[in-house]
Nucleic acid binder design. Structure first.
Lengths: 158, 158
DNA sequence: ATCATATTGTCATGATGATGTCAATAGCGT
DNA sequence: ACGCTATTGACATCATCATGACAATATGAT
């Protein structure tokens, strides 16, 4: 393959990547604003989401893995959420140190409130876009994601 | 509109947004690795790109606006690039304080080298994806971007 | 020419995230 | 039971980024 020219797909993908960078920042900022009144940030919200998404209570390190984030920062944020009263730690029968993270009632209410804010927000954002196109975009981004995550997995094996 | 349920498009878009978050991190990490040997990071590379993309030399604050980033951090990175010998400051005939940022020869060579690394990388990444799908994804993301940037502009006017 | 306003670079500060280290604990093979 | 390895939470450090304040400078209205 010619290493000095981008293919048409490479060209298109370059533009897409630049949009991903820009959108990431814009969405995070918008998300921060959306849930600021609840005492949340995008990062805290995302971690609450991971706790909710898990079938059963998990220790911090497992949540961090679910989020592909590093343990230490997730730990710090979860400690803050605990001080804030949104999550609590439960004893882990299988591990004395690795306590299980659970939502408190207040945490559940806060997460639900965030969800109620997100619904009209995302519905409005999707206005004018076709479901087919959004799903095509999703397929493309998922395919890209898998390529990278494949690389990461390969490295971890090495 | 029902404010308690996501529309199908809203649902699809929610998934897309989560992919954007994840991909942003993955691509930044991959980009850092790609150009680390040149003494660059994704952030420095992006700023060099803005300098190249500008038709004529610009002061730091203008570059920051092009990048939708804040002045102060762009300033810091450009100061580092200057110490590194990749950019230089030229007197601005129209403004004594706001010097113009230009690439040095070494900066140009470094940027060209990064581009030569990016081309096979992005070509390879696009492998297996159709140009049409990538362009559809690009259109969707651009449409989203415009919505947010419209909001930002509206705020700045207020 | 004068003055109010905007722009720009600089500095300081705090929030966030990444990374390395360490001790406590758990799991597993023997 | 013993010992080796992996996992986990805690702590420290550093890089990056966001934000506010400030002085110097430029711009535009009068």
């Amino acid at each position: 393959m010619d290493k000095t020219k981008r293919t048409p797909a490479g060209d298109a993908l370059t533009n897409l990547v630049l949009d991903i960078f820009r959108l990431n920042g814009l969405i995070l900022t918008a998300g921060d604003r959306l849930v600021a009144g609840l005492g949340l940030t995008s990062a805290r919200w995302q971690i609450l989401g991971a706790i909710v998404a898990a079938e059963r209570p998990q220790p911090v390190a497992w949540l961090a893995r679910d989020l592909w984030a590093n343990r230490q920062n997730v730990q710090r944020i979860i400690n803050e959420l605990q001080k804030q009263g949104l999550v609590a730690f439960e004893p882990n029968p299988h591990h004395r140190r690795a306590q299980l993270v659970v939502l408190t009632d207040q945490g559940r209410r806060t997460f639900d409130a965030a969800m109620r804010l997100q619904i009209p927000w995302i519905n409005n954002l999707s206005d004018g876009l076709s479901v087919e196109d959004i799903e095509t975009a999703h397929r493309v981004l998922t395919a890209l994601r898998k390529k990278f995550e494949g690389d990461v997995d390969a490295e971890e094996q090495a």
